[in-house]
Nucleic acid binder design. Structure first.
Lengths: 129, 129
DNA sequence: CCATGTGTATCAATACAACAATACACATGG
DNA sequence: CCATGTGTATTGTTGTATTGATACACATGG
């Protein structure tokens, strides 16, 4: 994987290390990051996105704690061979459940018609924009 | 409005005062809180949800700053007469745009089929559960 | 063998949220 | 009139989280 493939928004309210953790978590569960895949080094990511190496390290450590990454001493971090990657659809769905609930609640409070919300989301999912 | 109508999750990562602000913002934009509607007192909300009155006051003050609430001295806070309430659909949609983008991105990284995501969201929007 | 590249332990700086305890100015309403 | 109920300013404390700077241990590979 490349450092430029990571999407990071330094200005977002969501802390940087968590942005990384959740993104990598999803890419592994989705199968886009297969076991054995080497991750970009902490300094590489940090340099590219102008953030602190320790922030990246923290993200990697958390992912290691989850068993998703493994440390190759002297080499870097890689997607763990034992990582539960390319998970079944139902399990991947569960990862966006909280977001779905929040969205539904917000839409309800705004009295937005379901059709309208669904149409817009469909648009974003298909076209990506 | 009643203090019990406010949904507050003290354990959530989202700070309490912002939970209140955004919720009220949406309820006004959606028209469920019409101009003139009296808000529950800070002590009432604080007592019901076991939080600090100053935390509620902070939320109310921010909403006053946005022109959504107005202070009725000696009485409490009410939805401002000048509040832009019951906004047109397009404007209400814009309030959930960020959430929609995040959701779409997460779904994409998880390689989830659009149909599945849309079906689940539809379920939550219609049944509320 | 040792320069170079890994990750990270450690400590510090900062910011933020929430709570706590008052005290205050003000309007209502019996 | 004045007890009662508004919101709020103030000050301080606590807990937590995030980020950052530095130094370190370690393995690789020419």
């Amino acid at each position: 994987m490349d450092a430029s493939s990571l999407t990071i928004a330094p200005g977002a309210p969501e802390p940087i290390y968590r942005q990384i953790v959740e993104q990598v978590r999803r890419l592994i569960a989705g199968g886009q990051l297969p076991p054995g895949e080497l991750m970009p080094s902490v300094r590489e990511v940090a340099g590219f996105h102008a953030i602190n190496p320790m922030t990246v390290s923290r993200a990697y450590s958390l992912l290691e704690g989850e068993g998703l990454l493994e440390r190759l001493r002297g080499t870097g971090m890689a997607v763990a061979q034992s990582a539960r990657s390319a998970r079944p659809e139902a399990e991947r769905m569960s990862l966006i459940e909280p977001r779905l609930h929040e969205l539904a609640r917000a839409a309800r409070e705004l009295e937005l018609p379901a059709s309208r919300v669904l149409r817009r989301l469909d648009q974003l999912l298909e076209n990506g924009e």
